[in-house]
Simulated scan of single mutants.
Amino acid sequence: MHDICNHDAYFVQKCDATGTLGLLPEQKLTAVIRMLAYGASADQVDEVARMGKSTTLEALVRFCDAVETLYTRDYLRRPTPRDLQRLLQKAEARGFPGMVGSIDCMHWQWKNCPTAWQGDYGNRKGQKSIILEAVAGFNTWVWHAFFGVPGSQNDLNVLGQSPVFNDVLRGQGPNITYEVNNTVYQTGYYLADGIYPRWTTFVKSIPNPRSQKEKLFATYQEKYRKDVERCFGILQARWLIIRGAARMFDEEVFY
């Protein structure tokens, strides 16, 4: 609250033209958090926060802008060398040296998708959705997020548009060195499911493991790949606005 009030004076309590004190920052932030966490509309939080609909919606937009401005640099970024070392140490302890994280996509259902866009945003189940591609670590820290792709596409189409490997293609990828079976590798990788291509940057499970060694590998790969699935689950459980309608959708902001 203090960070946001220092960033945007809109949340600071002020007097109006008649000298009457306005809304407290706690009121505005409570209304915003309830909308984000419970998927409530502006009218539903009126009884709790005693705020008008237009004020609540403006507070929501300003809150999201402030959070993005203040915390994107810390919480939605590429791993620093120190972060990368911590991720690699944890991955090696789990039996996957050189693993940076898990990658996958989540379909965000768009309940009130405009009629003109429903052809582009219809997924294979007939629902309207937008896709979020993310790379998450063992502690559900999101190191990469690519959002806004129409729902008619699958993980491969999203990967073709995603900037996740732009640094690698420019030769600016992190220097990762590890050894497996007396062979030295210098490319980090992500755990992925079967739809992803057979690239050196993806380690997938074995579809039909037969030997005990293959079964053991498949078990561990599928277990640790659930890091990103767990991240999606927490995101949907804690912030129910994702499951509801795309409120405050604005074409200019979206693009």
Rank of each mutant, 00 (worst) to 15 (best):
H2L: 09
D3R: 09
N6H: 07
N6V: 03
K14T: 06
C15I: 07
T20N: 15
T20A: 11
G22Y: 07
L24T: 10
Q27P: 03
Q27D: 13
V32P: 06
V45T: 07
V45N: 03
D46A: 06
E47K: 04
V48P: 00
G52S: 00
T55V: 01
A59C: 10
V61R: 06
R62D: 02
L70Y: 03
Y71R: 06
T72P: 02
T72Y: 00
D74F: 00
R77V: 02
R78Q: 15
L84D: 09
Q85S: 12
R86I: 14
Q89G: 01
Q89W: 06
G95Q: 09
P97F: 02
M99E: 14
C105M: 06
M106C: 13
Q109A: 04
T115G: 04
A116N: 15
W117M: 15
Q118Y: 07
G119L: 13
G122C: 15
Q127E: 14
I131S: 04
A134F: 08
H144A: 09
S152Q: 11
Q153G: 03
L156D: 12
G160S: 14
Q161E: 11
S162V: 07
V164M: 12
D167K: 10
L169P: 04
G171E: 11
G173S: 13
I176F: 08
T177F: 08
N181I: 03
T183L: 11
T183W: 10
Y185H: 15
G188T: 02
L191C: 00
G194Y: 12
Y196T: 10
N208H: 10
Q212W: 07
E214P: 04
L216V: 08
F217A: 09
Y220S: 10
Q221K: 03
K223H: 13
Y224G: 02
R230F: 07
F232V: 05
F232A: 05
G233K: 01
I242G: 02
G244K: 13
R247G: 12
V253H: 06
F254E: 14
